[in-house]
Design a protein around this nucleic acid. Structure first.
Length: 987
RNA sequence: GCCCGGGUGGCGGAAUGGUAGACGCAGCGGACUUAAAAUCCGUUGGCCGCGAGGCCAUGCGGGUUCGAGUCCCGCCCCGGGUACCA
């Protein structure tokens, strides 16, 4: 060993030995607990790794190494998410094949990961573009297809009309194509989807079973976006102004709203069925089986109604309204009233509906066009065009004014026969709910804004709270609830923001007056169900997963299209469908994948030998990352994607580590596939990742300059990015130094090679662990690694300096020795260090794990300096040094092995058992007790840790400093917290 | 706007409701050295005081408590996510 800590002299040597000994090969021994530690599947970019990426890999390595030392079989694999647009684009740019390029980049990643000593089992590694892996990605696609979870339908893509190509979202900046600058259009082409919506509820429910950061769970819940409400039907009619006036006049004289139906609230078909059955039997003796049958039918019908998204038609809620409209001349006898559905979570406000809104693309709009006069028709058409061509950029504008057009038609509010104008506006989304809403401007911000802009009626139906009304009462005026309420009802448009609370009751609402939100929702919901015009329904924001990419560099979708337009799956024994090896993969016409132009690949035959064409869309990368963690369990299996027994052993991933930017997509898709595979019986777990941890980003100081005149800043940037060289040349006051994420494009990357070259791999690891809490962002400072190196050199020194005193057989002797004061202190420090290191690593508190080791080293040094190293102390010192070296192992494996062998240890420190601690030895025997008076610290005193409450109280009252604050006052109370403090309360 | 994080010394950060500032960085003083680097020792939240000591301090304002960085209510600021989801 050298005199000084010189990592360059031994780090490479140990990495060599680890590799020769195949040290990180996955151990699968019976009777050991398992631990599966995994990092997010990285995309190997040509830029290689920065120290920022290491922030992900080092902590996972620490916990895996500790688990290994604790006796677990540890699965700690690494693979590469090779498919995808960036690789394809770079390959096109460099005129190379992405497969070759990926192989090169992957090798770089591996070399860099090895350089910093990460304990990956490379024998299990693969890339998602490996045929062996693709085969099973395709196989899972087929499984989803067979289970009815994969389907094809028309969907929009981003279309660049200049380059005539499909763009990914990330290729669009501010509504324009990044490359051509063209305004991106929407184009509808058939694309593949996975029916993740079918799993929406399970994806919400099972979040409760996994240990993930709450923030990520919340994001997933919001993304899935469950809401409970009622979907109901409305009928539309066109009436001219004279007819509307006539109808209103008639309504004001009769003023009869429909009474809530008093029947059972069941579907009419069933009522009829039951009547028939009863008629054919003596009234009282309907067989139980028939009753059951009815109940069952009832359930089925209700379910069916829910499934097809259509409320059960029929009922006569509209009949009375219809008659009146006919009398007013708005309908001819037998004329149809087209219906449309709306979904609402606030059916309790249904009496406050003053207009309806259809999305511009809603199918009913077409029907309305045939009903309304020419001028309306023209206005609607114009609005539709306007909505369609609205660019993505315009849609992004935060405070976009509401736009819309009145269709000229009216709907009937089923609860009170009110005539409701139907508007068309793009603030209603086509693909959420039914694409149509009932608008209640009095209790919905968006409807309110629309009503104000277009002069529509606002009708309050939820009684506002006093607190709400007070906000609108002129200051100084005496508050009178009834008067304010009257004012509110008379001038509701002056009340902005609107009253949206659910903690109130209905008023001005016919037969639901006085009901609370849940009561009203239930009553109206049941009434609508009884009328056959609506049903309670659960709605999700989550959309089906669009898997199609019109791209070359992805896993093919194993589907054949026959000439008659039908489809079949590529037979299992013909998998995988590989990508054709071609030099050019130029985009196809009309938004087709580049593969569509490769005739020899596209044209094939189906299972019957008939001509067929291959599906030319490929799967997006999220398919690969949705199951790779299963392949790691059994990576060389040629017969299956994995052996279910092996997956049953290793799954779930015990600890999954990666950036929070994948909070939703990847993690949701992987959960979805796992559930499908679970349902198929291929994996035992319902959730793939038991515990999830997100590391913070590594930021580096990056130079920007202020924009010059006429220069525009990119979204979210505070200045114009400049190079480090440019920053040096500019006057200081013109350079803005900002913390920005390390990236090649910002020129602020520090590579692991540079860091290791200067300070050593272990110093880099220590710094990354120590600099900040694991999940916090780090402001990178090259200088900070010096601290890591300094600490390691102190460890090195304390071991070296005391090596001669080290007794390799300390463990067998230490139990019998007679400990003196210094020995007890040293053993206490050792056992505390073991306890803390273990706890902190388990908790992902790596910064305190390292600081605990620093404290331990300082304590050893202090004690050694003040103590004669003989006998008992020598054994305690041996224990301390041995423990220190092993506790250091997960964080600084090279140094640990170097010191371990220096102390005469066999083999590798990884093979030594993780030190265990004796709680009794870790306990302090003397503690400093705080004496407080009225909660303020006045004195401290060292006392035996086991001091009784009485002794502590006495000592506190005896303190002169305490007395100074107590004297002259009465002691009301004394709080004693054993081992902590005494608080004397006076007053 | 909404939903998540987060505001503690010059800096990164510690702190099961119980002595705020562990550990480290930087600074200052000292030792070693011809000198420097490296290393080691000491010191370092602010204010007042010669001192003993006292007062003030965890974004701001309230509250609960014997006791609040920690819990509750109301704000402010920063970072991330999301975008009219009826």
């Amino acid at each position: 060993m050298a005199d000084r800590y010189e990592p360059a002299s031994f780090e490479a040597k140990w990495r060599q030995r680890w590799s020769e000994a195949d040290l990180f090969k996955t151990r699968e021994e019976a009777d050991r607990p398992k631990f599966y530690g995994l990092d997010f599947f990285p995309y190997p970019s040509g830029a290689g790794l920065s120290v920022g990426h290491c922030r992900n890999y080092v902590p996972t390595d620490v916990i895996c190494r500790m688990k290994y030392m604790q006796g677990h079989n540890v699965l700690h694999p690494m693979g590469f998410d090779a498919f995808g647009l960036p690789a394809e684009n770079e390959a096109i740019k460099r005129k190379r094949h992405p497969r070759e390029m990926t192989a090169e980049y992957t090798a770089t990643y591996r070399r860099q990961m090895d350089l910093i000593g990460i304990s990956y089992d490379w024998s299990r590694s693969f890339a998602s573009c490996d045929p062996d892996f693709m085969k099973w990605t395709e196989w899972i696609f087929e499984l989803l297809y067979k289970r009815g979870l994969a389907y094809r339908r028309l969907a929009s893509v981003n279309w660049d009309p200049i380059d005539k190509t499909v763009l990914a979202d990330e290729e669009i900046i501010g509504g324009r194509a990044e490359r051509s600058g063209a305004v991106v259009e929407k184009k509808f082409i058939p694309q593949w989807f996975f029916r993740i919506t079918e799993y929406a509820q399970r994806l919400i429910d099972d979040l409760d079973t996994i240990a993930w950061p709450e923030g990520i769970k919340t994001q997933q819940r919001n993304w899935i976006g469950r809401s409970e409400g009622v979907q109901f039907t409305m009928r539309a009619v066109y009436m001219d102004e004279a007819q509307v006036r006539a109808l209103k006049a008639a309504a004001s004289t009769s003023s009869s709203a429909p009474a809530p139906s008093s029947d059972s609230g069941r579907l009419p078909e069933l009522e009829e069925l039951e009547r028939e059955v009863r008629a054919s039997h003596a009234a009282a003796d309907v067989p139980a089986s028939v009753s059951q049958k009815i109940a069952q039918l009832e359930g089925n019908l209700a379910k069916a109604a829910e499934k097809v998204n259509v409320t059960v038609p029929g009922g006569d809620a509209f009949e009375s309204a219809r008659a009146k409209i006919m009398m007013a001349g708005g309908l001819r006898p037998a004329e149809r009233m087209p219906s449309f559905d709306v979904f609402t979570t606030r059916v309790d406000t249904v009496f406050g509906m003053t207009f309806c809104v259809l999305a511009p693309e809603h199918p009913l709009v077409e029907t309305l066009l045939s009903m309304v006069p020419e001028d309306k028709k023209k206005a609607i058409r114009e609005y539709q065009v306007q909505a369609k061509t609205l660019s993505a950029a315009d849609r992004l504008v935060v405070t976009r004014e509401k736009t819309g057009v009145f269709s000229g038609a009216y709907a009937i509010n089923p609860v009170n026969e009110d005539l409701i104008p139907i508007w068309i506006a793009d603030y209603v989304l086509t693909d959420y709910g039914t694409g149509a809403i009932m608008a209640v401007p009095a209790h919905d911000e968006r409807d309110f804004e629309f009503a104000v802009k277009f002069g529509l009626e606002v009708k309050p139906v939820i009684k506002p709270t006093e607190e709400y009304l007070r906000k609108f009462t002129p200051p100084g005026e005496e508050f009178d609830y009834e008067r304010e309420l009257a004012r509110y009802v008379a001038y509701p448009k002056q009340y902005d923001p609107v009253f949206v609370s659910k903690d109130s009751v209905c008023f001005n609402s016919g037969w639901i007056n006085g009901l609370t939100f849940p009561e009203a929702t239930k009553k109206v919901g049941e009434w609508m169900e009884g009328q056959g015009i609506g049903a309670r329904k659960i709605q999700y924001k989550l959309r089906d997963w669009l898997i199609s990419r019109q791209r070359y560099w992805g896993c093919p979708i194993p589907v054949l299209h026959r000439e008659d337009g039908s489809m079949e799956l590529v037979p299992e024994d013909k998998l995988p469908v590989l990508l054709p090896d071609v030099d050019n993969y130029e985009p196809g016409e009309d938004g087709q994948s580049p593969l569509a132009g490769i005739d020899f690949w596209v044209n094939t035959t189906d299972s019957q030998g008939r001509p067929a064409k291959r599906e030319t869309d490929t799967m997006g990368g999220f398919a690969d990352s949705s199951w790779y963690f299963l392949r790691f369990c059994d990576p060389h299996n040629q017969k299956q994607g994995w052996d279910p027994a092996k997956a049953a052993y290793w799954m779930p991933v015990d600890c999954y580590v990666g950036g929070a930017e994948h909070a939703v997509m990847h993690l949701l898709y992987a959960r979805f596939w796992t559930k499908v595979l679970h349902d198929e019986g291929l994996v035992t777990v319902k959730e793939p990742f038991q515990r999830l941890e997100n590391q913070g980003q590594v930021l580096a100081l990056t130079p920007y300059r202020k924009p010059r005149e006429g220069e525009k800043l990119d979204m979210g940037e505070e200045g114009i990015l400049i190079s480090f060289d440019e920053a040096k040349q500019l006057p200081e006051d013109q350079v803005l130094w900002r913390w920005a994420r390390m990236s090649k494009s910002k020129g602020n990357v520090v590579t692991p090679e540079e860091a290791v070259e200067e300070y050593g791999a272990d110093a880099l690891r220590i710094y990354l662990l120590f600099v900040a809490p694991f999940n916090a962002d780090v402001q990178w400072d090259n200088h900070g690694m010096e601290g890591g190196a300094r600490f390691l050199s102190r460890v090195y020194k304390v071991v070296e300096d005391n090596r001669s005193a080290f007794d390799p057989a300390w463990a067998s002797k230490i139990g019998t020795m007679e400990p003196d004061e210094a020995t007890r202190k040293l053993r206490r420090a050792t056992h505390q260090a073991i306890r803390n290191s273990t706890e902190h690593i388990d908790r992902f508190a790596f910064n305190t794990y390292i600081s605990g080791l620093m404290i331990f080293v300082n304590t050893i040094n202090d004690l050694v300096k003040s103590t004669q190293v003989i006998d008992a102390f020598r054994l305690a010192l041996s224990e301390a040094l041995s423990s220190l070296v092993l506790l250091l192992g997960p964080a600084a494996p090279h140094s640990s092995d170097e010191l371990w062998s220096s102390l005469g240890g066999e083999g590798f420190s990884l093979h030594a058992p993780w030190p265990s601690f004796d709680a009794a030895l870790a306990v302090e025997d003397t503690v400093t007790i705080a004496f407080q008076v009225n909660g303020k610290l006045r004195d401290t005193l060292d006392m035996p840790a086991a001091s009784s409450k009485e002794d502590m109280e006495q000592a506190a009252l005896a303190s002169a400093k305490v007395q100074a604050f107590v004297s002259g006052q009465t002691v009301k109370k004394v709080i004693v917290v054993p081992g902590r403090l005494v608080n004397v309360v006076v007053g």
